[in-house]
Amino acid sequence: MNRFSLALHFVRRELHERYRGSFTGFGWAFLQPLLQLAIYAFVFVEIFKARIPGAGAPGYVPFLVVGLWPWIAFSDAILRSTTALQDNSALIGKVAVPREILVFAPCAAGFMLHLAGFIVILLVLALTGQGIRIQGIPFAILMYLPMFLYAYGAALCFAALQVFVRDLVQILGQLLTLMMFAAPIFYDRSNLPDRYQGWLDLNPFTGFVEAYRFLLLGHGNFGWGALGLVLAIAVISYLVGSWLFRRLDPHFEDFL
């Protein structure tokens, strides 16, 4: 209970910090993905003339929103949490604080902000008749839970390693970009040549994107098997992350 209220306090602090000193405040959490979306939409729709194959396929913009927005939440949370221990080294050196909370806070705060933005843009798209299924929105929100667990597990892992290997966060930025293009965010599975389509399953994020597409656009396939896989990824990530974190936890202060 105590741990819970402490976590709540840190999440609140984190949310506070994100808008403190900036004019746009919380709006930035919404503006940033929106801008990114506008750029990608322009490049892919106007320049590359991207199109989703198949009859009755969704328009490219809702197709992109549904994949890109959760990805931004995911990668943003991981990147911010990775340096969490380093950023709070002054606190870690003075107070016996449960360290996983320091990683949890930026991760959870990032997810909350981006989820709020996601809901807003989905409602806007739905109301302007872009083919978003309103009844799918609650399920899509539920899908954020395993995605959060996945991200939190990864964040625990990277935050612990970052203490020892300081250039991890730079490498991680590159790796996340790679992972983004290796997941069907900007394209559909059916855009790929047949022999490459199976490779997509190696990317753990593929399942999440396809789940959102299925739930919100009725596009593609997402069965119980795929759901089970997604949940398994989330649980395994969390278990591995917290094992690694607990293993290194006693030694953080020595290396910070």
């Binding site: 209220s5 306090h9 602090r13 910090e17 002054a90 050196g93 003075k94 107070v95 604080v97």
Partner: peptide, 26 residues
Amino acid sequence: GALLELGAGFHPEYSGRDNIAMAGAL
């Protein structure tokens, strides 16, 4: 209640009031 060296784990960017709240929560 520990006061280790200087600083006591205060966050330099936050006001004294915020840091009190934080220390209390900890």
